[in-house]
Amino acid sequence: MLKIENTLFTAVMAVYFASMLLYFCFIAFKKDGFARFAVIAQAAGLALHTLALICRGIGAGRLPLTNQYEFATSFAWGLSLVSLVFILRFRFKALGAFAAPVTFLVIGYAAMQSKEVRELMPALRSGWLGLHVSTAIIAYGSFGVCFVLSLIFLLRARVQQGSFLDQHLPDREKLDAISYRASALGLLFLTFTILSGAIWAERAWGSYWSWDPKETWSLVTWIVYAAYLHLRLRRGWQGRAAAVFAVIGFICVMFTYIGVNTLLPGVHSYA
């Protein structure tokens, strides 16, 4: 089963790469047809990715959410899923051209990690693992999409009026509204992640919160996005300022994910 997963993972990378190229062609050659195929390729990649994760789960005999490789590939899955939902929900195909490279970078990072299946330490053998990590995947995926939308927002002013891209990008007001949706989804799921992690930590270690670096940085990320959502209510803080804030928020997300694991040892060091 793990061999099948390995093959599927390679296929997923190839399909995501093809999807990214198609999105680029859509922008470069200014033809809607490329975008249609890019979305189809992304959906196909997502289906294969889901299958690969299922195979990994069956092969490992547990949820595939416990080490750097598994979380990275799941993070890429979350990014791909949330971006596809936003592309379809808001009929915003150009989003794919910006989100696909981020997804490809994350899955590329996954490819560089060890794929070895290790047995789980007793603390990780819990039903809370699935809820805790899967909500984190959706949260990170949503923040990734929010980051991409904020970048588009910041670049939007430079797009020539009447150009092909101008016609395929929502105006700044709408981008801001969509970005808000993505960050709201991320914050909600990050809250579930922190809560489920706290309940699990209490059962495993007897304490809801122990200021472990991962916990602390999840809280920092939560505070940054909470501040972002509050700032948006203030005059003068919508639009550009909010977009810059969302970019800072995603830097926190990435530090929580990669930086903490590699630079700050703690109880999440295995993740």
Binding site: W217, V220, V224, A227, H230, L264
Partner: peptide
């Protein structure tokens, strides 16, 4: 005031975690 507090708390948490 809440935003200022949140910013200070976030910075303090980030610094302390290092």
């Amino acid at each position: 005031f809440a935003i200022v507090l949140l910013a200070v708390l976030a910075a303090a948490c980030a610094a302390a975690s290092t």
